[in-house]
């Protein structure tokens, strides 16, 4: 079997496409997917992400998915920009494609850095992405923390479409922990409910990672069940409001990701979510002082306006 693991592109390497002669300068390695490695590259002074694969057929399947997604949402910025082959010095050829570079951090790092307050919104955005994909006729398949990038203000982007599968076919790639077959909770047929199950496990992994992994170590294969997962939904304060939602997703009860997203949204704005307690709570006297300052400032502005001291653009 050919794998891409042999090929390592050092920063500074310039790659020229065999067919279209596009030149791309490697900046650094961004990550590794199932079908190849993803690099940050520079082309005509702009940054892109480049996926280099070891197997042309595997990579092309992925490209086919991206193409048919692109044909469905014409108005958005294109995700897939070029497809070509790279001829290495040793004569071996590696297929690659160029895609939009998504700035962001992987899901768990984002939540660790920005705080669990962002979880309901990020979750909702992710469900929206999944719904969009399902409505285009595909299931994501290999949903896991590493494949979800979060950008500014909780914007979500799915990366690595290696597991994306046409609805009704068998899921092409999956990760055991997130796979409903592994938990004796259903088939590996690509259905919306498959991704929603993975989404629920993803939520558990974010806040109950240790207990989740403990389950995989202690339970015998035939004893794994969604009931074990459902028990993990009530422990953590960030998950608790969504416990009922998660149980439904683990039970395959949502007809579609869109329906799941709507139910998620109702919980999000239904008052069930309590803001996480601030780590450094502002002391009362500081808040008081701040309020006084603001009143003084407002008074000053009112005075300045009445005296005509502000530039015309501001008044």
């Amino acid at each position: 079997m050919k794998t891409s693991s042999e090929l390592r592109l050092a920063p500074g390497t310039v790659i020229t496409g065999k067919w279209n002669r596009g030149r791309y300068r490697v900046e650094r390695l961004l990550g590794e997917g199932a079908n190849g490695k993803v690099y940050l590259v520079e082309h005509s002074r702009r940054l892109y992400a480049m996926k280099v694969g070891g197997d042309a057929v595997d990579l092309q399947s992925e490209i086919n998915v991206l193409r048919s997604l692109a044909s469905r949402r014409r108005r958005t910025e294109p995700f897939l920009l070029a497809v070509d082959d790279y001829v290495h010095r040793d004569g071996k050829e590696y297929p690659f494609y160029i895609m939009r570079y998504v700035r962001g951090s992987v899901l768990h790092e984002y939540l660790q850095r920005e705080g669990a307050d962002w979880f309901p919104l990020v979750g909702y955005n992710l469900l929206g992405k999944l719904a969009e994909l399902h409505e285009a006729g595909f299931v994501f398949g290999d949903l896991k923390r590493e494949n979800v990038l979060v950008g500014s203000y909780g914007r979500v982007e799915l990366v690595d479409y290696g597991g994306a599968t046409a609805i009704g076919k068998s899921v092409r790639q999956f990760t055991e922990l997130y796979d409903r077959g592994y938990w004796n909770a259903g088939s590996r047929t690509a259905e919306g409910t498959y991704d929603l199950f993975s989404f629920a496990v993803l939520c558990l992994h974010l806040f109950e990672g240790r207990r989740l992994l403990q389950l995989t170590k202690t339970l015998l294969p035939q004893n794994r069940s969604p009931a074990d997962l459902i028990r993990l939904t009530t422990g953590h304060p960030a998950l608790k409001p969504f416990a009922g939602w998660l149980a439904r997703a683990l039970g395959g009860e949502f007809a579609s990701a869109r329906e799941g997203a709507a139910a998620w949204q109702r919980i999000m704005y239904g008052g069930g979510v309590k803001p996480a307690r601030r780590r450094r709570s502002t002391a009362g006297w500081a808040a008081g002082l701040f309020a006084c300052t603001m009143i003084a400032l407002a008074a000053a502005i009112v005075w300045m306006i009445s005296e005509g001291m502000l530039p015309t653009g501001l008044s």
């Binding site: 057929v57 092309q60 297929p95």
Partner: peptide, 17 residues
């Protein structure tokens, strides 16, 4: 498949899949 230009691989790979 590899010897085909990238824009012609799509259809062949669809058949393979």
């Amino acid at each position: 498949v590899e010897a085909l230009p990238p824009d012609r691989r799509g259809e062949v790979v669809r058949v393979i899949d």
